[in-house]
């Protein structure tokens, strides 16, 4: 898949899986958002799992980009699940008052993909 940024986006069945493994700064995060949306358009994916196990910190700007990406993906017909958030990242975001209420979450990639499978089985969009 052609991409602006260097965060790989993989196709897993009818879903997309992307693992963020590098220190994000704003430009990389913005490029990532665009890459994800282009990939959804190109593949017609119905689900998206964003794995952030590798992120040691997520500030409000990056959190907002991740949340916005989920909402934009929803407009394009793909359901987003954010997985693997570290304990200290969750505690920090909540303390800052940024609980990312609009994004669905799961413990890890397996759980996230299973949840997308379950949605598909239920025939939900």
């Amino acid at each position: 898949m052609s991409q602006r940024g260097n965060i790989p986006i993989l196709r897993v069945g009818s879903n997309l899986l992307t693992t963020i493994h590098i220190d994000l700064h704003d430009t990389i995060a913005e490029a990532f958002q665009e890459d994800v949306l282009v990939a959804i358009k190109n593949t017609g994916a119905k689900g998206l799992v964003i794995d952030i196990t590798g992120l040691e910190e997520v500030d409000t700007y990056v959190a907002r980009i991740l949340a916005d990406t989920g909402r934009m993906a929803a407009l394009m017909g793909a359901h987003t699940i954010l997985v693997g958030m570290r304990a200290e990242v969750a505690a920090t975001l909540v303390r800052m008052g940024f609980a990312m209420d609009t994004v669905e979450t799961a413990l890890d990639v397996d759980d996230g993909l299973a949840m997308l499978q379950a949605r598909k089985a239920l025939g939900r969009k």
Partner: peptide
């Protein structure tokens, strides 16, 4: 409530 929100963020 904050704890609830944080647990939700990690997927629980």
């Amino acid at each position: 409530l904050k704890t609830t929100a944080a647990v939700r963020l990690v997927g629980g």
